[in-house]
Design a protein around this nucleic acid. Sequence first.
DNA 1: TTGTAGGCGTTATCAA
DNA 2: TTGATAACGCCTACAA
Lengths: 372, 372
Amino acid sequence: MNSKRVRQHKSLKEPNIHAVAQRAGVSVFTVSSVINKKAHVSTPLRRKVEEAIRELNYRPNLLARSLAKRQTHTIGVVVPDIANPFFPLIVRGVEDEAQKAGYSILLCNSDNQLEKEEQYLELLLSKRVDGILLTKAPGSLAHSLCHVLCATKVPCVLVMRTCRDLKADAVLSDDFQGAFEAVSHLVRQGYRRIGLVGGPLNVSNGRARWQGFRKALRVGGLPQCQDLIVEGDYRIESGYRAGLALLPRRPDAVYVANYLMTVGLMKAAEEMGVRCPEDFGLVSFDDYPWLGCFHPRLTTVDLPKYDVGAEATRILIERIKGKSGRFVIKKLPPQLVVRESCGFTHRMRGSMEPQQVQQMSCVPKEADIPGT
Amino acid sequence: MNSKRVRQHKSLKEPNIHAVAQRAGVSVFTVSSVINKKAHVSTPLRRKVEEAIRELNYRPNLLARSLAKRQTHTIGVVVPDIANPFFPLIVRGVEDEAQKAGYSILLCNSDNQLEKEEQYLELLLSKRVDGILLTKAPGSLAHSLCHVLCATKVPCVLVMRTCRDLKADAVLSDDFQGAFEAVSHLVRQGYRRIGLVGGPLNVSNGRARWQGFRKALRVGGLPQCQDLIVEGDYRIESGYRAGLALLPRRPDAVYVANYLMTVGLMKAAEEMGVRCPEDFGLVSFDDYPWLGCFHPRLTTVDLPKYDVGAEATRILIERIKGKSGRFVIKKLPPQLVVRESCGFTHRMRGSMEPQQVQQMSCVPKEADIPGT
DNA sequence: TTGTAGGCGTTATCAA
DNA sequence: TTGATAACGCCTACAA
């Protein structure tokens, strides 16, 4: 009786299931059954309930439902920075897949900082998300977090980056393979002094893109010129600085491990009056729809960003639904997109004389092949 | 083993406030007080509570808290498509500001479809978000939704687009002004047959960008050539089709109302062998960090995307905290960024001071290297 | 088929 | 300063 009294003022308070039940002259169970299409409710009662719902403009409180059922139908997504053009398409893949399965996404930007990442993970856990999609920042997670995430109490799928101390499923693009193909292509073009603007080595795909580069040189029989290698952090500024450091050493080609650093490097090249592909060949990592219509048209490794996001979400939802079994690491194949920055058309123009090639590399012959 | 069973039981179930209270030998109130730093708790008790929290790896259940306090500290963000490069920076502005104030964001993609939008809004309302940031899809909202959103029961701030039937705060860039300046610049360059690839007219900023175009022609004393005007939908494909339709009619310049359509148009131009800026001038809307280092270097109207997101969030949070008063429509100023696609250097070649040219082509401006 | 009562994990109101 | 206990709104055995 007491509780009924409280429910009198309709306009102030959101209507709840009791209000609907009262209005329809049935019990809350009946209302709940109608909403969740669970138990069979007789047609006349169902009608009355539906009408009451409409009249009151009632919306079930999903908070209360989540509390009672211990699942929120929400997944947390932690990326370094949604403003980095790499991530939006991943997140779109995530959101599409999540939405299809009835999940919402809580978006967080870690800025690649361990501390922000931990704060967000704590928050997501406290908000009782059903699962987490994580593009891990460099560094090790706190034990208290790791324990929860590893123990599959809250399933977690790693996106684009693996993590040593977090045993979990992971979905990546095959960056080693991508880098290998990219640099191999450069090698096939006849470049000898190939520079690298690599990603951060404390991130797994930074290492993979680096290793692919090394293998391609090895297979191609080229030496690694240590002075043509720069480690960046995937951001524009670091690519710019890498360009300033690298280009004066006259590499005849450069492989850059992501798009933003390529942007920075191009900026540096422009400042220095060095042109691509005339003065140096370039292969970049990660493709975008607009790269085909501006010059130099970038030769890139196209990464299946959308699919990575979608697949990671599918796996996560499987785990949420209780699937057990060994953790999987799924690598999706990238694809080399040959355009012009690698000097493909440029170099093929006529058949080039060896001297000309030599001339373009701007480097004495001895320095070219120190090992042989 | 009994003890093992107990342990298992504990590990299966998340510890709750009662468990903590029991462990610390106090009441739940005390625990709650410690967590929320509310009532003064004596130091010894507080110590015991904190220790129990650590030992149990307890995390307060924010769902339950939200239910009890009727606020979720979550805001819903509905954008057309996070994969459209226009939105990530807006969302980043939102997230930064939200995070500062202790809010999380639930991200939704409406694809500009009214139906998806309504489904998401319903969902957000059911999840009891404290407020909503909405980039409205074309069309009118259902009454039941409109009522809730308008009545400030759940505050809503419109982002980038106003909406006739949704009386609410709004934060926009001043697209009318931006378009006016962009096209005026074209006019000053001496172009006479200026084409338009406009945004959708059922979206407020589509109309604004259109009107700015018209006013610039009027002020410049130029006639509107109806056959040089195409309505697009802000996506690449529509820009491409617009290019195919427009370019054969030989406009001497084109103003395109967003970046993706510009990409499409450039693709069409390339296919048709029409060059920019040699054969036609181009001004685009919306700037990106990489536009300064590929050719043709696009002259654009730079929109304060981050600030729009951040400001909208600030206003929303004010509303959530109960601020009343008239709805405001805040317009943030855009900025014309002159590069080369408008034919500035091309047309001026010969009559320009050397240092000006230098400035245009090579030197990166601060704004071009953000710390994404 | 329908109703009742207890539980989900907090906060908040009164007493003590 | 603390401790019971009633909301918060929904789900769900268990009864009827």
